[in-house]
Amino acid sequence: MTVTRSEYCAVAIADCFADDGEIMGSPMGLLPTLGARLAKNTSNPLLLLTDGEARILRGTPPLGQTADVTEGWMPFRLVLESVVPYGKRHVMMGATQIDRQGNQNISAIGPWDQPTRQLLGVRGAPGNTVNNRTSYWVPKHSPRVVVEQVDIVSGIGRTRAEAAGPAATRFHDVHRLVTNLGVFDFGGPGHTMRFVSVHPGVTVDDVRDASGCEIHADGNVPETRTPTDGELVLIRELLDPKGLREREVPTP
């Protein structure tokens, strides 16, 4: 079976949740949802996942469907007061910009007082990044998205957390950045962006050309692992039979 780029992304995202144990996964967006549901079927059956609204789902329905056994209640108020600060959560957010230091922006483009484009607003990003494990998903890696410095810091990276003091670093845990080109963490010098792997068909130079900041490499950068046959069956037949993943991440 030929593995598509979006399927490499799906397993790379699933691997982000593999060692989380019995916590709530909060995947934002299509590929993160696919990846988290894949993890629940493979590496981490203890993962708690919602329908994106107030219901905790027992199983993992196909993308776009929510009909399933409900195992719990998770209204917004409980997310904000009883999950985020409680810490038993791993959120994977999007990022309109993410920088070398691991800061993320979903607020606006341009200066705060005079934005050129309003985005969603900071939403829960400031709270997420000082309370629970946080990863990021970028479907289109480009120099405008992966930048030297974000315009408005919504989710915070390690250096800013340390500057804000022990209360900000105590539970700070930015785990991974997964993009359509590769997987990264913030284990480079001074907690900067570092290669974890590149997806098959992508070179380190391809990634550097598509980035607006330097990305550290520890020696040779490995390839993102290939999905197992079992994972491909789960992705193609159970979790995303309509192939919505190919629309978000077309294979080049």
Partner: peptide, 13 residues
């Protein structure tokens, strides 16, 4: 008191 906001642009803006 809460942690949310520490280190972010929210406190600057």
């Amino acid at each position: 008191p809460m942690r949310a906001g520490l280190g972010s642009a929210v406190l600057e803006n």
